[in-house]
Measured scan of single mutants.
Amino acid sequence: MFYPNSPQTSPQLTQIPYGQQYAMMQRQIQQPYHPFATTEPQARLYPYHYQGPIQQEQGGFITQQSTAASPQYVQMRVTPVDQSIMSGYPNQTANGSSSSSFNYNIHPQQQQQQQQQQQQLRHHAMPVGSVPLQDDRYRKQLIVNYLAPDVTSTDLHELFSRFGELDGARIIYDKQTNMSKGYGFVYFCHAEDAKEAVERMSGYEFHGKWLKVGYSTNPLNIVPSNSSPYVHAGSRGAAG
């Protein structure tokens, strides 16, 4: 039997160049792979992502010199942007860049009308829970959420009447099932009393439920100042 490094198959040491006398086997001759043993700084910083320098080929596509990437890492192929796409944008300079302001050559009167329309939209648009300043009635009506099913309009009136005089209180019921929808409205005579009720009743436990109280901004629920107070009856038909 002959071994790869046996004296019968191995040459004389004098015939082997210096430095390879003890590297006779194939696994010894093959050098191990060192990912950080390279002179390129990109490979030292990113050993798993770097795959060699990027070269520009004919046709405008950018390719990489090395083989496919590892399945664990996804390499994105980048193509140059066609400058003709950006030619339609206004205020574009000769080098292809555009300024931040756009001039669509709008007539001054049209621009003024658009600004007025935007101001009107901001004036009428009102986020949930906010209180408008032009109508004091919005500051007097509250919406009470997360009410228990057994709470009546009379219970709601008695709960909030300790903060001040009320114009009314009612629970909203479903017309088909005649069941409470879980929320109601309270109408105060003074805005200061309503503000105190919002601050003190939010998070209050009532009939096993934690109440959420806020201003009601729905104009359909506003009680006119010259109208008669609501009837605080315990029956659902009268309260709904």
Rank of each mutant, 00 (worst) to 15 (best):
S100M: 03
M201N: 01
F2L: 07
Y22E: 11
A94I: 10
P4M: 06
M76Q: 07
Q110K: 06
F185Q: 00
L13E: 04
L133C: 10
P17V: 14
P41L: 09
A125N: 09
E205H: 07
H34Q: 04
L13A: 11
R44N: 06
L45I: 09
D193F: 01
S98F: 14
A238K: 03
N226I: 05
Q12D: 07
T177L: 06
P80N: 12
G203A: 02
Q12S: 10
G208Q: 06
N226G: 08
S84F: 15
L133D: 05
G234M: 05
L220K: 15
I171D: 01
G240W: 14
K212Q: 02
P127Y: 11
S10W: 14
F2H: 08
A125C: 08
S84A: 08
Y18N: 11
E40V: 11
Q114V: 10
Q112R: 08
L211C: 00
T14I: 14
Q31M: 12
Q117E: 08
N178E: 10
Q75K: 13
L45K: 06
N105R: 09
Y73W: 11
H123V: 09
P11I: 14
P108M: 15
V186L: 07
E40D: 14
H190P: 04
F2S: 02
A68T: 11
S97A: 07
H123Y: 15
N145A: 02
K175S: 04
A148T: 03
S99K: 08
F206C: 02
E192R: 03
P108R: 07
T39A: 13
S97P: 11
L142E: 01
Q110M: 12
P132R: 12
R137T: 01
A169C: 05
S10G: 12
T152A: 10
Y18D: 06
F188D: 00
T67E: 10
W210D: 02
Q56I: 12
P7C: 09
L121A: 03
M179I: 06
Y46E: 03
V186M: 02
P229N: 11
L156E: 05
P4W: 15
R77S: 09
Q31F: 10
A68G: 12
Q20R: 03
V74T: 08
H124A: 11
Q20H: 14
A125R: 05
P35S: 09
P32E: 07
P229S: 06
P47S: 08
K209H: 00
D155N: 15
P108G: 14
S97C: 13
S228R: 11
P90I: 14
F36K: 05
F36W: 09
E158P: 14
S10F: 13
P41K: 09
M179D: 06
V198T: 05
V186Y: 13
A197V: 04
T154G: 07
D155S: 09
A239Y: 02
I16Y: 14
P108A: 09
